[in-house]
Nucleic acid binder design. Structure first.
Lengths: 242, 242
DNA sequence: TCATTTTTTGACGGATCGTCAAGAAGTCAC
DNA sequence: GTGACTTCTTGACGATCCGTCAAAAAATGA
């Protein structure tokens, strides 16, 4: 089943619209995301934009859903890293860093979508995509941690679970995103270098679970470097992490 | 210097307006926060609301600033807890839990304010209040951790700092707030019980730093109970934590 | 070539923000 | 209590932006 030229044009345009909206979101924020401006930016009329996205919120959700899918893909790629479970979890964390640097708009968009109390203007399909993408990320982390439990590297204590660990890492990661907004107000090395702090704190956190080998026994810096060069060369380059 | 009856009325009205705005924010979200409705809810006209708040964003910022001050006060109260440094940090965490339960609107409001890219409509004073309140919270945590370092309970390693630890706790705490939005989509014990997970993960995190006594050596549940009953009886009751 | 279907357009209705001049209410000296 | 002066309140108004829709334009296919 091939696409007619017109259908192809429409498909391409949707990507263009998302690119424009994403850029506006980053540069000007949600308040300044105007449907007229988005349309104008790619030389169509507003009505045409509404052919693609049911509402302004839907456009926002589409931007968030697209980057969320990219994130899930990065996480799944990180899963392929060759090494101990803990090193592989480190690779996932590196994937998070790459995404963090490449899609600075994402958290704001996702938060706004979730804050938009299931607005009727947002297509259910987009919400589902966003949701599935988040679950894929959790899935990757859960699998790695489960493996570590099985191999004896991760000795969970009474009342602890693999899910709790994954939620904790996710919280640290999300919190790091939020710190970026704080940078404008506070200046502190630990706040300023959000990525570095995230890295260090994730290590402390996993050490707290007793996930061997502990970061006091092994230097995980090398594994991180290897992850970036082997798995995310292009992306890390673009993000300025290499 | 006393206030004339009229001035007192105006002062009281400002609190009323904040109450109304806070409730609307919680029930309907930011999109549905209408200046007309806020005015109508307390029986004044829109122009009067603009006498208090320069813009819609300013009203939002005022709501956030007010609850941020409450949070700072709770944190400072927690600091008074009698016990080991680590127990006192646990008390701060309990204060965070209380706030978490009592002001569910707060994070959404604060995030929106910070996302509003220093909108010119927001009074600088309110931003300063919000900022100062956050720093007061960090100040409490920093003092306790610094004390723990001094007393030898908290053995920081090369490259680690008290600030890094505080940022980590803050991230876990902020992340827990965000999980609340996820609850609608994911159902998992660790996601569902955001507060419980935050508690457990904060302990793991501090254990990771080797902050003695470790949670494997001492049961901190008792200290938490004592914090809630001794310091936050009324609030914990209202929040349903007791 | 032309009838039919699909897509695009931009003017329009509706909603809300923030303003401001006119009017209402409060204050204060006497 | 009165009246002049100050402060506060009001709601209509201009401006902006969202989302719609009938008419126009473009694409399709026989």
């Amino acid at each position: 089943m091939t696409l007619s030229p017109k259908q192809q044009e429409i498909r391409d345009r949707e990507e263009l619209l998302l690119d424009v909206a994403q850029r506006m979101l980053l540069e000007r924020g949600y308040e300044e995301l105007r449907m007229d401006k988005v349309a104008e930016a790619i030389g169509v009329s507003k009505g045409t934009v509404y052919q693609h996205f049911g509402s302004r919120d839907d456009l926002l959700a589409a931007v968030a859903a697209r980057s969320a899918e990219t994130r899930a893909a990065l996480f799944e790629r990180a899963q392929e890293f060759e090494g101990s479970p803990r090193e592989r979890m480190g690779a996932v964390e590196a994937a998070a860093e790459v995404f963090f640097a490449l899609f600075p708009h994402h958290e704001q968009a996702e938060r706004l979508v979730r804050a938009a109390h299931l607005s009727p203007g947002i297509s259910a399909e987009r919400i589902a995509t966003l949701e599935t993408s988040t679950q894929r990320c959790f899935g990757v982390a859960t699998r790695i941690a489960t493996e570590a439990v099985a191999s004896g590297d991760l000795p969970l204590r009474e009342g602890q679970s693999v899910e709790q660990l994954c939620v904790g890492l996710w919280n640290l990661y999300q919190g790091a995103f939020l710190m970026r907004d704080l940078e404008k107000f506070m200046s502190d090395p630990a706040v300023d270098d959000a990525i570095g702090t995230l890295q260090r704190n994730a290590r402390v956190f996993l050490d707290g679970f007793g996930w061997r080998p502990l970061s006091t026994e092994v230097d995980y810096t090398a594994a991180r470097e290897r992850t970036l060069t082997e798995l995310f060369a292009a992306e890390a380059q673009a993000a300025g992490l290499l």
